[in-house]
Design a protein around this nucleic acid. Structure first.
Length: 480
RNA sequence: GGCGACGUGGCCAAGUGGUAAGGCAAGGGUCUGCAAAACCCUGAUCACCGGUUCGAAUCCGGUCGUCGCCUCCA
């Protein structure tokens, strides 16, 4: 069975056939780095992280480009977001950019999001953007007015094909254009003339200015992925005008299709309402990570399809966390048992079960990256594994290693919710030794039915965050 | 006002024509010194109305409701 992707451009689920066999060129709109990243960013980039991980898992050579917007993104007041923040902090614009870009990568690293292969910055690609604008002017798709350049939407009949909007409708509902110099209210800026106080500025054929917001993505995607490439991703909230403008600029400039498959992620609300600065209900990734481990947040995000909107709430994340703990418990126990298991080949029956699990998992992911269904497969695997762990004391190293390996692939490599190492192996050797010593002493106490001592050890360790569980084959421990 | 999405058991959520995955919560049970964990068992006819069909959660029409976009947003 082959991979199918819901293509927003055609509003259909289509078989995925890359331009070049075995290779995927992919672009995802990145953040504008003017503040700390919030959990909405987490939803989008974790979603695409799993897309990239899966494409690689099934053998594609993926080139993943995600921009960093550090100039050109205007507020509706016409003010540059970066400049506004810089003024608030009395800092240089590039200090602001540097601060929040580093913060963004920190957050993504913490969430287990693999870094893009290229993270191009808009401010580092001014010449490419200018060249593209010039091409658009030459081809009659853009016009210059007093040092600024605008894209002429009437010159591109397909404008609106992604979002389903029509220029005529836009005109009706459009607010009074702030810049009267535009010929059509829907025309958008490619290049803006810099006012004297605007310090983010570059020389151009039209005078000192700065690029519009949309042109960077077109210019950088083209530079690194080619005129036509395979997948373009982003949040659904950018479908208009941003994504629409990208298509218009690129296809008008090159006369070739831009991205072939468009994948857009659903938005995230917080306790039922959209996050917004004015309501003050934003939750940064850093704050979320103080409450939940990254795997819990990833599991929560992957519990709904990437294209669905999700609502972030304590209860929902907590439920996802519990579900994750069940999987992680089975993985930890498998690895613990592996250390003392008898040598031997893998049990053929278990191997068959694992193969079926893997096949089903792939089937689900092939269906437009259905992570929630894939997660359910992992849960069923976990039920089977826990059953084996409970009932069979004779599991060999081969069997246990095969189980561990499947979790590493599906839960680790693809979904990124199964860590490489368990707490036991990750923690310091001395600490491990101390815990095991206490477990031994407690076992002796239990043997002589000294429950007071046994419980004291367990309770004290629990207070320190070390949870003991007595099983038929011995006591295991894990970090809470 | 325009465009679009959605409405599945207490909660979250898969499932797009053949009699409803999974997780969380709840109840019962097994195991256990106790606990924890795990395992087993128990529950929905899919917002409502009408239509198409041998047959629909799944297609069509309508009603109600929720949300997103249309202006900056991942």
């Amino acid at each position: 069975m082959s991979l199918k992707i819901y293509n927003v451009l055609t509003r259909q689920k289509e078989e995925f056939v890359p331009l070049t066999e075995g290779k995927v060129n992919m672009y995802v709109c990145g953040p504008t780095v003017y503040d700390y990243s919030h959990i909405g960013h987490a939803k989008t980039y974790v979603s695409f992280d799993v897309v990239v991980r899966y494409l690689r898992y099934i053998g594609y050579d993926v080139l993943y480009v995600q921009n960093i917007t550090d100039v050109g993104h205007m507020l509706d007041t016409g003010e540059d977001r970066i400049l506004k923040k810089a003024r608030q902090l009395s800092a240089l614009p590039m200090q602001v950019v540097e601060t929040y870009m580093r913060s963004y990568f920190e957050d993504m690293d913490a969430l287990g999001v693999k870094r893009p292969d290229i993270s191009p910055r808009a401010s580092a690609h001014i010449p490419e953007q200018i060249a593209m604008i010039q091409k658009l002017i030459e081809k009659g798709h853009a016009y210059v007015v007093d040092g600024s350049v605008y894209f002429d939407v009437t010159s591109f009949p397909e404008y609106g094909k992604l979002s389903g909007r029509k220029v005529e409708e836009l005109e009706e509902g459009a607010r009074v254009a702030i810049r009267e110099e535009k010929r059509h209210p829907a025309d958008f800026a490619l290049w803006k003339k810099a006012d004297p106080e605007h310090i983010l500025r570059w020389p151009s054929p039209w005078g000192e200015g700065y690029p519009g917001w949309h042109i960077e993505c077109s210019a950088m995607a083209t530079k690194y992925l080619g005129v036509t490439f395979d997948i373009h991703g982003g949040g659904i909230d950018n479908i208009f005008p941003h994504n629409e403008c990208e298509i218009a600029q690129s296809e008008a400039a090159h006369g070739e299709p831009f991205a072939r498959y468009w994948m857009l992620t659903g938005s995230l609300t917080l306790d039922g309402v959209k996050m917004s600065k004015s309501l003050g209900n934003t939750l940064t990734i850093k704050d979320a990570l103080k409450r939940w481990r990254p795997e819990a947040i990833r599991t929560f995000i992957l519990s709904s399809h990437y294209s669905s909107p999700i609502d972030f709430s304590d209860e929902a994340v907590e439920a996802a966390h519990k579900g994750w703990q069940r999987i992680w418990g089975a993985v930890s126990l498998t690895r613990a048992r592996l250390r003392h298991a008898p040598e031997g080949e893998a049990d053929p029956n278990v191997v068959t079960m694992l193969e079926e699990t893997k096949a089903t998992f792939i089937e689900k992911m092939n269906d437009d990256f259905n992570a929630p269904a894939a997660l359910a497969v992992l849960q069923e695997l976990t039920r089977n594994v826990n059953g084996l762990l409970n009932e069979r004391s004779d599991l060999t190293k081969g069997t246990l290693a095969a189980i561990d390996q499947l979790y590493r692939e599906l839960g680790g490599d693809v979904l990124g919710i199964v860590p490489e190492t368990t707490e036991a192996s990750a923690s310091a050797e001395r600490e491990q030794g101390l815990i095991e010593l206490l477990i031994e002493l407690r076992a002796q106490a239990r043997a002589r039915k000294d429950w007071a001592t046994a419980d004291q050890i367990r309770d004290r360790l629990k207070a320190l965050g070390v949870v003991l569980e007595d099983r038929p084959d011995g006591t295991t421990w894990k970090l809470a």
